[in-house]
Each structure stands twice: as C-alpha cells, then as structure tokens.
C-alpha cells in the first residue's frame, strides 16, 4: 500500500516539477510548484514525518508560493518567447545532471548499507513535535541561529537594494 502511494506521490511530484520548468505561463508554473510541494509533503507524511509535511505546506505552499504568485501578478510577468540555450548553459546543465546521476547511483549502492536501525521507542526527529523541538534547541542550535542570521541579512539587503534612499531623512 505505502509503496503504491509512494510511487503515486513521486510521479506526481516529478510531473509537477517538470511542469514548473516547461510551462510557458508563469502563473501555471507557480501553481505547478505548489502542487510539487504538496507532493513532497505527501512523501513526508508517508515517512511518518507529519510535522515536516505540515511545515512544508504551511511555509512553502501556504506562504512562499503565494508571495511568488503575488509578485508574478504585480509585475505582470508573461512567459513570452523562450531564448535558445547558450553553449555555457548546455555544458553546465549536462555536467550538473551527470553529477546528480552519479550521486544518486552511489547513494543507492552505498548509502543503503550504512543506515542503522533506529532503537526501539526513539522517535524520528521529524515526526514528533517534541523531538523536533529538542533537536532544534540542542544539537542544531548553532546552525539554526546562523541560518536565521543569514535570512535577516538577506532581508536587510533586500530593503537596502529595493528602497531608493533620497537623503538622510529617509534612513531615519
């Protein structure tokens, strides 16, 4: 049962991801992204990582894609004519795709052997809220703080870049 569901969600996610890339309509692309994220959330739910599934829907599907759509509509971006790919793009695309394939093959060959059985009773950190919170505030405290700081810097950067400061009056 779960194998069938996994295949369904995986195919759905990949199909939607392809839809993001190949759609000519920008709005349709953004909506495909939304569906792809919902598919990923479904896979998380199959892995019993319900918390991650819900966070995926709440943060990415609920807020980030909404902002994408918002911006696409405000700027009235149309898909338009697609430029033919340059040589450099094709070259780097082939290299990155090759690296991805090599990585996947090596992961399926070697990665599966190293996964140890979880001790009985131990909750996976992505599934239970309490375990997730504990991990965030103990093991991963530093990375979380650093990422938070990075996001803050990015936000300030956006404000500085997008706002046209006329004189000292505006900076106040």
């Amino acid at each position: 049962m779960s194998a069938i569901l996994f295949n369904l969600f995986a195919i759905f996610t990949v199909a939607c991801a392809l839809g993001v890339v190949f759609n000519r309509n920008t709005i349709a692309s953004a909506l495909c992204l939304l569906l792809a994220l919902v598919g990923v959330a479904g896979i998380f739910a199959l892995l019993e990582a319900f918390l991650l599934a819900v966070l995926m829907v709440l943060v990415y599907a609920g807020a980030v894609v909404a902002l994408f759509l918002f911006i696409v509509m405000l700027l009235d971006v149309s898909g338009g004519e697609r430029k033919p790919f340059g040589k450099a793009t094709v070259f780097s695309g082939i290299i990155s795709a090759g690296l991805l394939v090599v990585g996947l093959i090596s992961f399926t060959k070697h990665g599966a052997q190293t996964t140890a059985e979880l001790p009985a009773g131990a909750a996976a950190s992505g599934s239970v809220l309490k375990a997730y919170g504990e991990q965030l505030f103990t093991t991963y405290l530093l990375p979380v703080q650093i990422v938070g700081f990075l996001l803050l810097i990015a936000m300030l950067g956006v404000i500085v870049l997008s706002k046209k400061f006329q004189g000292l009056e505006d900076i106040k």
Binding site: L31, L34, F50, L51, V54, L55, V57, L58, A61, G62, A63, A66, L69, F70, M73, V128, L129
Partner: peptide, 19 residues
C-alpha cells in the same frame, strides 16, 4: 499531535482560491 499547526497549514492554502 500537530493539531493546530495542521489547521493553520490547510487554511493558509485558501489564499490561492482568492488569488
């Protein structure tokens, strides 16, 4: 056990209907 979070997550999708 994620009760309220699930409510927030699903209801945040309703914005798409309006958009």
């Amino acid at each position: 056990d994620i009760g309220l979070l699930a409510v927030f997550a699903i209801s945040s999708l309703s914005v798409y209907a309006i958009i």
